[in-house]
Design a protein around this nucleic acid. Sequence first.
RNA 1: GGGCGUGUAGCUCAGUUGGUUAGAGCGCCACCAUGACACGGUGGAGGUCCCGGGUUCGAGUCCCGUCACGCCCACCA
Length: 849
Amino acid sequence: MANIPDKPSLDGIETRWMQQWEADGTYRFDRSASRDEVFAIDTPPPTVSGSLHIGHVFSYTHTDTVARFQRMRGKQVFYPIGWDDNGLATERRVQNVTGVRCDPSLPFDPAFSAPFHGDVPKDHRAVPVSRPNFVELCREITHLDEQVFEHIIQLLGLSVDWTLLYTTIGERARRVSQRGFLRNLARGEAYQQDAPTLYDIDERTAVAQAEMEDRDVPGAYHQVAFHRFDGQGDLVIDTTRPELLASCVAMVAHPDDPRFQPFFGTTVRTPLFEVEVPVLAHHLADPEKGTGIAMICTFGDVTDVTWWRELNLPSRALIGFDGRFASDTPEWITTAAGSEAYAQIAGMAPKQAQRKVVELLQTSGEMLGDARPISHPVKFYERGTRPLEIVATRQWYIRNGGRDTELRDRLIARGREVTWHPSYMEHRYDNWVGGLNGDWLVSRQRFFGVPVPLWYRLDADGNPRYDDVLVPDEALLPVDPSTDCPVGFTNDQRGVPGGFIGDPDVMDTWATSSLTPQIASAWEEHDSLFDQVFPMDMRPQGHDIIRTWLFATMVRSHHEHGCPPWKNAALSGWILDPDRKKMSKSKGNVVTPIDLLEKYGTDAIRYWAASGRPGVDTALDEGQMKVGRKLATKLLNATKFVLSFGEPPAGASATEAIDVAMLARLAHTVDEATVAFEGFDYARALEQIEAFFWWFCDDYVELVKGRAYSGHGPEAAASALAALREALHTIHRLLAPFLPFVTDEVWNWWQTGSVHTQTWPQGHRSGDASMLDPTSEVVGAIRRAKTEAKASQKAAVSTAVITGPADLLALVRLAEGDLGDAGSVAEFQWVEGGELGCTVVLAPVEQAG
RNA sequence: GGGCGUGUAGCUCAGUUGGUUAGAGCGCCACCAUGACACGGUGGAGGUCCCGGGUUCGAGUCCCGUCACGCCCACCA
């Protein structure tokens, strides 16, 4: 035991073991394993444009404990890691740290270098750069971010196989993503449509339903009068968006509403703009809302879109991609007064336009009373700052059941094929799928992403024929249609009549990350890895992205493979700050893990993380981290102590009753932990293991150490030594998934190889543990007596009188010798009757001098 | 408005098909230099299990209802 330090310490063990594991390839995936020997994990690729915060540490630790358990159970664990680096989040970060913005109309500038790297002055106006320059900058910045991430993931002790690293903007990801899309297209699951689309006017891109959120914002009801042509008065509406009056195409009320039934089929004149619009009936109009009659604009909200579609109304959209009102007076405004009114809002943003329209309405007397302020929910892009507008655009969609009940039902049924941990998370999936109101919009008018791999033929006038899609051969993927040519064309035909044009869009970041199982496993990449690992065993992720990542992955797998992409979905909760508020960047309460890792050590942080139940939001609790550190320290000291007794003689085994009982209890603990882990409940496994370990240290070791010192002869000592070592051997392995650093440290004091490649301990041991509880109770009673007498625990007891039922006394007597040692008891008296108890007579303290 | 979850000691949380006196850790209080650990150990105090009904021999646990909090969805005229 020459390896055991005099003063064991946790300092520096992270670096040492990180390097050792990497050098030994401890977590390398075995490509020769068959599918049934594999446990495959669809690791979430963290978004590198954000910071890795304590929430990542939390959920990644959960997965890692399961991975380590499965590895020790004999599985070949496929545990890749990837970086999610494409998408708008990265673009924003790049804009913020380099002071540029992408202008796709500019040509590539080979000599370009970014004006800043990190500290962009507040008054700096972003420098426009070409798309290729911008993408290059994105790659540079993400590469730097990824190095930081790699360091933290390693420091966390995640047992990922670094040779499996992928990025979502990397070549393979682009190829897999484009291949997946083209297959969807070929099967009719992807289609394009020119339709009103929710659109972020700041980012200038369409947005999918899954990326939207409602925010309560201040608004105001404005009562506005529409004039009847019979001169018999007005129809009055309440609107929060008076600025859209110029886009009004109709008025609508409920068909059963007697107040408005007389007007259905008639027309009215819009205020200010003097456009004649019909009064129509539709069941979605709510008699309770506002005045009971509404104006339909193209487009103020999604109900407008429904009305527009179902009532076959004309499109009079005025707000363009730049979020401003068209600068020319539209043709449907025909009167001089109407044109004059429009001229005053032309080119304005919606807010400005609203002020102007209200002013005009007040002047003309067509607004009744003052605006009544309200707070109402408005749709925003989740990363956006201004409300979404609805703009008619051509976009690509993937069918996800949002417009097809049969597909929706099939996807919900797919959800049932997955085992959810915890099980109630499945409701969130069902809810989301059941509530979809459209297909998945996958095209984005952005730059740093996987390009939509398509071109369109141009007609004789040079106009794109979107129905004439030119598709690349899969063997040529990945393609960038802005620089690559479709087969049969040359680059000089780009943009010229009779030639072609590339699709300018990239795909939604989820359109790529929905294929993480396929990317990580090199699907269709001339590699058998996919067959070895797909469908995967486990998808770990946060419950907040069930609607996006989980659902999108399910959709792609359902279309492509006809099965769910994994067998289990393990949902992690969030980290709340100590005041139980959700951590988020905007609240400024995000805790970065690096300081905590340094302060308490990785194992301690992992202990805290693993104490959080699956799916449950958990408060950041430094107290738990202290406990974790205490546990790791205890393992060092307890191991040192047990090993210090030396090796038992060859062939020795546990023979004394309490030694056998302890091993029986340990076997039971192993069984409990194993069952919990198999159900992905790492927290329960830890709880069981930890409880055993503390009992082992506090009671068992205290009881038998006298015997282990040979106080009762060699045979009794041999039994204790054998039991102690067997228990230690098991404890080290049980704690290994949670405390990977300290367990490998102590393991290597007396064993060879990494504890992480050992076999998970066996339970199912015969033996009776029933003597342990009453024995602990007597130990406690003796200790209590000494504490109450303010005596040292070492104080000598002349007589201990133990009372209780005969069966319990018999059990406790099995440990009489050990009890005598541990309690320094000279003589025991055993008295049958009453409850189990113990009274103690302390020996007189010898007078000093 | 629909769905889901949570509510147990000052704090963070366990409590498995209902079963003696409801548990752990932290914190708090008191004590202890005992052959691994003072970054330690021992003991103690501390609870109307949100509230109200019901089922049952028996309810923290099951059922109904209420309240509070959190999340998801819907609600934009």
